[in-house]
Design a protein around this nucleic acid. Sequence first.
RNA 1: GCCCGGGUGGCGGAAUUGGUAGACGCGCUGGACUCAAAAUCCAGUGAUAGCAAUAUCGUGCGGGUUCGAUUCCCGCCCCGGGUACCA
Length: 886
Amino acid sequence: MDYNFKEIEKKWQQYWAINNTFKSETDFSKPKFYCLDMFPYPSGAGLHVGHPEGYTATDIICRYKRTKGFNVLHPMGWDAFGLPAEQYAIQTGTHPAITTQKNCDTFRRQIQSLGLSYDWEREINTTDPNYFKWTQWIFIRLFNTWFDHEQNKGRDIRELPIPEEVKNQGAAAIQQYRSTKRLAYYDNAQVWYCRNCKTVCANEEVLNDGSHEKCGTKDVERRYLKQWMLRIPHYAERLLEGLDSLDWPEGVKDMQRNWIGRSTGAEVNFLLEGSDKKLKVYTTRPDTLFGATYMVLAPEHELVKEITTPDQNEAVKDYIRQSALKSDLDRTDLAKKKTGVFTGCHAINPINGAKIQIWVADYVLMGYGTGAIMAVPAHDTRDFEFAQTFDIPIICILDPKNANDDLRSKVLAGEACWTEDGVYINSSNKEIGIDINGLSKEEGIQTVTNWLESNDLGKSTINYKLRDWLFSRQRYWGEPFPVIHWEDGEVSVLHDNELPLALPEVEKYLPGDSGESPLSNAGDWLLVTDENGRKGRRETNTMPQWAGSCWYYLRFTDPKNDHEPFSKIAENYWMPVDLYVGGAEHAVLHLLYSRFWHKVLYDLGIVSTNEPFQKLFNQGMILAFAYETTSGSKVPSDQVEERDGKYFNIGTGEELRQIVAKMSKSLKNVVNPDDVVQGYGADSLRLFEMFIGPLDATKPWTENGVKGVYNFLRRVVAFFGEMDNIIEGEERKETLKILHQTIRKVGDDIEDMKFNTAISQMMVFTNHCYKVGKVTRDTAVTLFQLLAPFAPHLAEELWELHGNHAVLSYHKWPVFDASFLVEEAFDYPVSFNGKVRFKLSLPVDLPNHEIEKAVLGHDHTTKWIEGKTIAKIIIVANKIINVVVK
RNA sequence: GCCCGGGUGGCGGAAUUGGUAGACGCGCUGGACUCAAAAUCCAGUGAUAGCAAUAUCGUGCGGGUUCGAUUCCCGCCCCGGGUACCA
């Protein structure tokens, strides 16, 4: 039989589609398995070979699980809001919906050509009003939820206790009070704004040199604009705790923990000189209070204006203006040159009454802690650099007993910085009864914190790096907020029955004036009047791309529901996601944001699980060779030829350098899977994506290996498709043994997601069959079952060829029988002083003294023990024998 | 700088977690088939020395623990990813 992959793949893809083979329905009689791929953004460029890597992996697992009796949910959809379609609209006037539709069609066609067993009846698209209706619905829930710190959960805003004094001020005050507690709130937020693009830009879009990544100009500045924000930090502790129970890669958990950034320390109040005002700082090292020799406020700190003395006013103002142009990265500056200005004001150190200067410096950020610090130059590197630059006293209070003499004497003299543990010195104040001299760091922290608390000067505090989530974008192509701003200042959300709030048609997609979204051009759509004649204007911002991807896994459980986001029954049956596979680039943001939404929905009783994704697996990136000239310009890979291991530009003949890099348009090295499917078939592509290396490893793409797996499939067809090779009667023992080894290894490897070694085991088995020449039908059919998750089209074809009629996809997975694997003898490697010298076949149950006898009696042994004495003989049963000679 | 991965033949990668390093595949070499080539099938393929049996070396580098180390410990070098003064 020839391997006509084109015909075979077409035939089975049609069969699966017509018979709805992979349709999944809620069925309580079976255990469920929910396996999810991170759904793609359908870009105009179509699929690249990186996409099918994760999709093939999940497909193998899903097909395997079906044969193990699981009811499998394996859906696919499109994260289709996004900037490229909008930018294309600005350039060409084409509505983003049209571009998006086209791209989705391309993606669907390409994905379907790979024979992936998705339930296409569950396909979803985040830009579909029937989908984003519910995204808006969830936003309304966020808006109407406050976080009760006592119960540690989100609750309905109507249950928020209103203080008496607020109640007495009337309805407007109550509204105002509630808005300070809602999980979604509307407020001024400092954002980067590009005057050239007229858009707000993300932190990461602003480059080190202060220019905007997208347009290259330096017309970026930080502005306060009204934005929607989500109070994700309220959930910091729950998001942190939740990680412990998850089967996720430790690295990803670490990254989330670091992002949340919990730290324990203390808030300390410093009195300002000549005032009864207090300056509150956050420190993780309250123990170093005796060494605090100055203080720093962030330039944005509200007290800066108030405390600056007239003679310092100009300098401070000037400094604030300059630092507003800097990115956080700029503030960190590669030159590490600390900048700052003295405010002219002093504070009193509560622990020793010392008068210390208050400075403004941009190495302190407003977004963290209280935006103010006490500086301890002797024991903090940053403060040390600053103090040296501005000639501020450095007082050592921690004797570095473990440092070398040279370093230690420098630290004691205030000429070097020491941040590790030591023994306190200069740290007592008899008058107020505190003394930590002689204690260690941990004891010092405890003692000082206790003292601060008992004297009402501060308190032990937990702090998080995690900040409020800026949840609005000034774009057209996103979910509109279901929000109205009324002329009397009230901000209200729509009623559920007014959803979806669809995007209006606009003439141009360009942003509005002063950073407003393109929706501000939407004319009548904007204006609303309520039953009392009160006028209002719709929110013109749209939601970020995260919104749709924050809950899509829930919609997949019941994607066509038109009266609720998903039914309780479906959610309860399918959730949580049992296996979630996607790229490591989403390790923090997407996974943290959707966990946050999930926890809110859980608190509101909308979902039944505390965490959405039980097991997470990050597939590694597939890199590709790229070629560059000596000047660094890139040459498309198809313009390169190889001669004697060197690379040349076909057109110019210039020698090129080969590098390995991420596939991207700019490197001109994107590989499209269509070509592989065309030349070798989908089964070969699937097999190769898995065979190229471990799923979680980063690996380069070369098409050389495709031939290898194609050849394997061709050999399977050539052997098992030839009826002369199939015999009646008993299978030979040797073949049964290797067959059962293969059943075990393929099953185990699928469970462990080690697909590369599963495939090589099937190759070993096939090579064996070639050697022995004939196998029984049972043996052949068993291999088809093992192969089916990997190369489903071919497996179905061979299964049918051998007289089976029901579709293989649900046929029970073969059972491994250990009795075929029992060995009678083991081929012992015999080593002398750790070096293997010869092999010796011995019965597996031979007692040790018999083994020793056999080894010592062996011809080869004489040579290695001649003139030496045997110290001992180590025998590891069925592993190795080692003779130690001296 | 810090954190997390990783360094194994010409190449992609195996190695049951301390027990035969290099499975499987690519590439290469030789043979069979063919008028010839391609395709296919069979055999070989870590390096060095040797006709050979065999020996020596060999998992980034240098030490250590052990009967035995790709695997564990200490120090260093290189590559990839993440992150940016978080008080």
